Simulated scan of single mutants.
Amino acid sequence: MTATLSRSGPAASSRGRTASLLVAGLIGLLVSILAATALGSEGISLVNVRDILTNHLHLTDITVFPYKEVIVWEDRMPRSVVAAAVGGGLAVCGVILQSLLRNPLADPFLLGISSGASTGAVIVGILGLGSAAIGLSGGAFIGALVAFGAVLFLAKVAGGSTDRVILAGVAMTQLFSALTSFVIFAFADSDETRGVMFWLLGSLEGVRWDDARLTAVVAVIGLAGCWAAAHALDAFTFGDEVAASLGIPVARVRAAMLVLTALLTAALVSVAGAVGFVGLVLPHAARFLVGPGHGRLVPVSALLGAIFLVWVDALSRVAFHPTPLPLGVGTALIGVPAFIAIMFSRRSRA
């Protein structure tokens, strides 16, 4: 009995710590969204934000100035929700790819998805192909899927190993980046170039509740699918042979998770543009907090990514008013020093 209690004690303590961390993360995310919604050139109090939110949830009927309601509900709130969904989704994709490919530098854009999305966006935005039917986001989504399909085909032809997937991703990233640059150089005027480049660097300008609902649903579905595969992802950490010995159908699980992360990344990038470093840095920060077990790592990474991108967007919007700093620039400026700090922290702990 004593031995059983001694074994269950640490496990129960770990579960309790994880549950506490998840609750704290959810509260932190809610507070972050409300605080980010209050920030801007037109300062709005948190009380007003609360009243507007509860009014739209049909919990209260409090009188608020109409212009404040428009700013909060139609502009800042959906923007913060999209930032949270994109940040959380990209962070989860980073966790999955780093596990499947056994590469700590893997991120959602390693498979050429971001470059393909950029090519699709510039083809629609500059050449005008399909602009009336699918729009910029639709073009980006299709471009991302085409790039991912090319990566899978090339990797399969080359042998299908993990290393071949990475090499195929690098090759397709370079190819589609070159195609994007060629279209901009050859066909875009200065105004089109400025507009497209702003989107390519990541932007949440003009997002509305339709975008917020889409990204939130996609991020939740992606998170649920990845969290359900936590046991298999733990096995992948030790290699394919160990995973197979534990009864994991290696090829099928890897293919399913690669497709899931590709679809999730493509959907998020099509709305927000190319937002880098979230999928690379935040999984490492989550491992620093909760360790390598994917049952804890996946949800904590999602929460950290969501909170991180909400604040990056809010600060870039406030500090660089009236033209917000592109999201990709903000995440790099903050993410690179944070990544370096994590590297040194892990080295000192080792």
Score class of each variant (00 low, 15 high):
L111R: 05
M172V: 15
A168W: 07
K156G: 06
G120E: 02
G94F: 09
I166N: 11
A171C: 06
A117K: 12
V157N: 02
A121V: 01
L101T: 07
G138C: 05
T162D: 10
L97F: 08
A144W: 01
R102M: 02
F141Q: 05
T173I: 01
I142P: 13
P108I: 00
A140Y: 13
P108G: 02
L179A: 07
V151K: 04
A144R: 10
T173G: 15
G94D: 12
G149P: 12
G130L: 06
S115C: 08
K156M: 10
S131F: 07
A121S: 09
L100E: 11
L101Q: 09
R164G: 06
R102H: 10
L154W: 03
G112P: 10
V124D: 08
G112Q: 02
A117N: 10
G169C: 07
I134K: 02
V157A: 01
I123F: 01
V151H: 08
A121Y: 00
S118C: 05
G116P: 15
G130T: 02
I134C: 09
I142W: 03
P108N: 01
A178G: 15
Q174R: 01
K156S: 13
S181M: 07
A155R: 07
G120C: 03
T180F: 05
D163M: 12
A155P: 14
Q98H: 12
D107G: 13
F185H: 13
T119H: 10
P104M: 06
A168Y: 12
G149D: 12
T119A: 14
G169S: 07
I166P: 15
A106S: 13
G149H: 09
V146Y: 06
P104R: 03
F182W: 12
S177I: 02
L127K: 06
A158I: 00
S161K: 13
G116M: 06
I166V: 15
S161V: 07
T162K: 03
A171N: 02
S118H: 03
P104T: 06
L105C: 08
Q98L: 05
S137P: 11
L105N: 05
G112E: 00
G94H: 13
F176E: 02
G159E: 09
K156E: 14
A178D: 08
V146A: 10
F176H: 04
V146C: 05
S114W: 00
S181F: 00
A132Q: 06
L100K: 07
G169N: 04
G135L: 00
A106D: 13
A158P: 10
L101I: 05
D107E: 15
A117Y: 04
K156P: 02
G135A: 01
L152A: 14
G143R: 08
A133W: 15
T180C: 09
F153T: 14
A178I: 04
V95M: 12
G169F: 04
S99T: 07
L110R: 11
S181C: 00
A144G: 14
I126Q: 12
S137N: 15
I126L: 09
S137W: 11
S131P: 11
S131W: 02
S181R: 10
S131K: 13
S115R: 11
G160T: 02
G130C: 09
F185W: 11
L110M: 15
S115K: 10
G112W: 00
R102N: 15
L127H: 01
M172I: 15
F176G: 03
L154H: 06
S115I: 01
G139D: 08
I184P: 14
F109M: 08
A178V: 07
A121F: 01
S118R: 10
L105Q: 11
L136S: 09
T173P: 02
L101M: 14
